[in-house]
């Protein structure tokens, strides 16, 4: 896509804004529509847009596949680890009251933040990993022939 000057410039501008929006959706999910699932998808879209316009090899330099594959597992570990940690503190699995015994609703806030983060990391990782898997195979058609 070397000839699409406007696309290239606009993508460079948009990528940062998309990531910022993803973080807003992630951490503002308690107050407005949003949460880990949506934020993960939007974060993945930032990388996918970059990959679509500049080529998958360029985005792999920024966000290397080995790191993405670690993220896929890390999210589930963060989620399950939150549950294990609350068990360690003497409460039930995923009982967020454990994180602030004196003020249960604060504990809930912390717990929700942690598990949403886990969800977001896994969804980002899976979506980007799947995109890499599809885009890295040799296509049966040239870019110009679509």
């Amino acid at each position: 896509m070397h000839h699409h000057l406007i696309l290239r410039v606009v993508t460079k501008l948009l990528c940062g804004a998309i990531m910022l929006f993803a973080f807003y959706v992630q951490f503002h999910g308690d107050f407005s529509p949003g949460g880990g699932f949506q934020a993960g998808v939007i974060m993945a879209v930032a990388f996918i847009v970059y990959g679509v316009v500049f080529g998958v090899n360029q985005v792999k330099l920024v966000f290397p596949p080995w790191f993405v594959h670690k993220l896929v597992a890390l999210g589930v570990l963060v989620y399950a680890g939150t549950g294990i940690f609350s068990m360690y503190l003497g409460y039930g699995f995923l009982d967020y009251g454990a994180f602030d015994p004196g003020h249960p609703s604060h504990g809930q806030h912390n717990g929700i933040l942690a598990v949403e983060l886990g969800v977001g990391i896994t969804v980002t990782g899976v979506m980007v990993a799947v995109y890499y898997a599809f885009a890295s195979r040799p296509p049966t058609i040239n870019d110009e022939d679509w």
Binding site: D30, I112, V126
Partner: peptide
């Protein structure tokens, strides 16, 4: 109990946390 304005988030992450853990595992 949760004191979070978005009820969907509070059910998703807290009341039905096990469910969401399972869904995350399915995505994984």
């Amino acid at each position: 109990e949760i004191d979070v304005p978005n009820v969907v988030t509070s059910i998703l992450a807290s009341y039905r946390g096990f469910d969401t853990l399972g869904e995350t595992a399915v995505v994984f």
